[in-house]
Amino acid sequence: MSDGPRYRRVLLKLSGEKFADDDNSISPQIVNSIAAQLVEVAGRGVEIGVSVGGGNIFRGTSPQAAGMDRSSADNMGMLATVINALSLQDAIEKQGVDTRVLSAIGMQEVAEPYIRRRAIRHLQKGRVVIFAAGLGAPYFTTDTAAAQRALEIGAEAILKGTGVDGVYDRDPHGAPEATRYSDLTYLDVLSHGLKVMDATAISLCMDNRLPIIVFELLREGNIWRVVDGQPIGTIVHAGPESASAEGELTG
C-alpha cells in the first residue's frame, strides 16, 4: 500500500509552445487536457504551482523580435506568459478547482502580484497557483523563473512537461536510434549540453539539490504518475557521478 504521492508540493514548468497546436497559438483542447491532469493531481491533495512560458505568442529571442531592444522584447514575452496563464486558469476553474494567477509584473485587474508568502498560502489552501511574467525582469528565461519560484515556494521537485518521454542524447524525432536517459546528474546535463533547462536554471537546482523530472506532458495521467513517483521520464538530480540510463553517458 502506498503512503501517498512521492512529492507533496511540486512546480510544473510549461513552455508556451505546449499551449499551441498546428492551427492555434492557444489550443483549447490542449489547455483543457493539461487542466484535467492538474485537477486530478490537486484533487489527490498535492500542492501544485505552474510556471508558464509565452513562446507560442512571443519570445524575446525569437525571429519576431529581430532588431528590437532586448529589454522591450523580453517585456513583451513576459506579457505573453500572462495570456497563457489566464487561459489555463479559465480551463482549470471550469473543471472545479480554484486557482490564482500571480504575476511578477503588476496588473492587478487581471492577476495578483507575486508575493512568496501569499503563493505558499494559496497552495496550502488547495489552489493551483499559476506563475506568470517570469521574474518581472528582462534577460531571465522562463526556465530560470521556474527554478526560482520552485525554490521560493519550497517545491520538492520541478516537473518539466515536454513532447517526448524524457531526455535523449539527440532529437528522437529525427534519430530513431536516440538513447533515452532515465537518470542524469546536473553535471551530466551541463557538461553534455543536454536540453533540459538553461544553464542558470540547472545551476540553481544543483546548488539547492532540487530534482527535475522531464516527462511527456500530454499522455493522460502522466503528471500524476510523476508526482506519485512512478518510473517515467528522466530524473535530473545530484546522484552518482555518471548517469544510469537505457544507455550510459560517455565522453
Rank of each mutant, 00 (worst) to 15 (best):
I223A: 12
T200E: 13
A199V: 04
T200N: 13
L194P: 01
E216V: 03
G221Q: 03
W224V: 05
I213K: 12
G193K: 01
M206P: 01
Y186F: 15
V196N: 01
L210D: 08
I202T: 09
R219F: 09
D183S: 12
L184K: 03
I213H: 09
R219M: 06
S203V: 12
I213T: 11
N208V: 00
F215D: 02
L210C: 12
D188K: 02
T185E: 01
D198G: 02
G221D: 08
L210H: 05
R180T: 09
L210S: 07
H192S: 03
L194A: 07
I213C: 05
L187F: 02
D188V: 01
V214M: 12
M206K: 11
E216L: 07
K195Y: 00
I223D: 04
L187V: 03
L218F: 14
L190Y: 00
L210K: 14
T179Y: 12
D207R: 14
T179V: 15
L187A: 14
C205M: 10
A199Y: 02
T185Y: 00
L190H: 01
V189K: 02
M197Y: 09
H192C: 02
M197E: 11
I212Y: 08
C205D: 11
V196M: 08
D207S: 10
R219E: 14
T200F: 02
L217D: 02
N222G: 04
I213R: 07
L184P: 04
H192Y: 07
H192A: 10
A201C: 12
W224A: 08
T200G: 04
S182C: 09
T200R: 10
L218P: 05
A199E: 14
C205R: 09
V196H: 00
I202F: 09
S203I: 05
Y181C: 02
E216S: 04
G221L: 07
D198F: 06
P211I: 04
T185A: 03
D198M: 06
T200I: 12
N208K: 15
I213L: 13
L204E: 08
P211D: 11
F215T: 06
N208Q: 13
L194F: 06
I212F: 12
D198V: 05
M197Q: 10
D183G: 08
R219A: 14
F215N: 08
E216I: 00
D188A: 00
H192D: 02
G221H: 13
I213A: 06
F215A: 06
